[in-house]
Design a protein around this nucleic acid. Structure first.
Lengths: 198, 198
DNA sequence: GTCTATAGAATGATAGAC
DNA sequence: GTCTATCATTCTATAGAC
């Protein structure tokens, strides 16, 4: 079974490679601050060559956001699929979110910086909001089970936990020095046990 | 003592009011996605009238960033001024940072979203980096004193703590329902004791 | 010849500055 | 309002691998 069709035509970038470089540049400079000319220059192409691969600048954004959101939603689905206590599901969601943020860091970074300036961005923000709501419900259930203190608001607790997790896109570097699974352990330890020695 | 000079000439915005609206709009849409025409429309002015108050769009950004950075640096200075253990200084820095993020939320929000696309942005990012380094040194000293577990990297711990704190700009709303000082208690409790009941 | 990646030139719209 | 620069985008055509 062949994994990729044999290359026809002159050699050059394919769609995936263009997308990868585009998302990286969007994250370096910001989506709005990055012009199609910037991207063409980074790739060593002309703008018109880029438009052969994609319909619009926004389409590049849309595809990247779809990747980020579908991976996060899959992690949530996997965590709640098995018949386990909400506390276990919550810890699995946290591990899954850390895994997605490290493995799909570029596209998730784009997602976390959206301002809602277009229908595409608004739709992505709405999907992200629904994800947050489902996690908040898990935190609430985990409070009922006693894993999480009941004297903190579930919404505040969720936001603080994901404040830690989401900050990963700002400083995590996939250079192999930090195992993402161990990083998830650190996040869970800090969220549940705190940083003070016991 | 009069707090504001009597208004002369036609009524209108003064420099501070223009700045306030500008920073708010920058945060709604993103700095790069906001045009001077957008800002003029929001204020009900022409672009020319705006340029009477300011030299450039970037000057508005620069002033806001100066506010955010000087307040954060002042909070750090206050925390380390008194002759107390590093552990105490660290908790005071955290309280101060939460106070600044809530009281100066608009300008700090701008600071946290910078990408370094101009010399002004690069200089601000460099000042922010120095702030982070000084806090990391405090965390390291607090580890030596036993407030913070020694088995987590000081840099990782600092980043996770400020991941929580910085997330405030995304969801805190100064509507009076949440006292910032109590919010700082929540952040400190989660960072030090964790969310699991003891 | 056919398919794909690429270029050059030009479009209309909008940017920041004054 | 006006200016010049730059924006995203499109049209038409070519270069190179099959």
């Amino acid at each position: 079974m062949q994994l990729s069709a044999p290359r026809r035509g002159r050699p050059g970038y394919d769609r995936d490679e263009v997308l990868r470089v585009a998302v990286q540049l969007f994250n370096e400079q910001g989506y709005d601050a990055t012009s199609v000319a910037d991207l063409a220059q980074r790739l060593g192409l002309t703008k018109s060559a880029l438009y052969h691969h994609f319909d619009s600048k926004e389409q590049l954004l849309q595809i990247a956001l779809e990747t980020a959101l579908s991976e996060l939603e899959a992690a949530l689905r996997d965590a709640v699929a098995r018949d386990e206590p909400a506390s276990t599901q919550l810890t699995e969601v946290i591990r899954g979110a850390v895994r997605v943020l490290t493995s799909e860091q570029p596209s998730v970074t784009l997602l976390l910086r959206l301002r809602g300036n277009s229908p595409v961005e608004l739709a992505a923000l709405e999907r992200r909001r629904r994800f947050d709501q489902r996690v908040t419900a898990l935190v609430r259930a985990a409070q009922d089970e006693g894993l999480i203190r009941a004297d903190v608001d579930a919404g505040v607790a969720t936001r603080l936990i994901f404040g830690m997790i989401n900050s990963l896109v700002e400083w995590y570097r996939p250079d192999g020095k930090v195992d993402p699974a161990l990083l998830a352990d650190d996040v869970l330890a800090m969220a549940l046990e705190g940083l003070r020695p016991r």
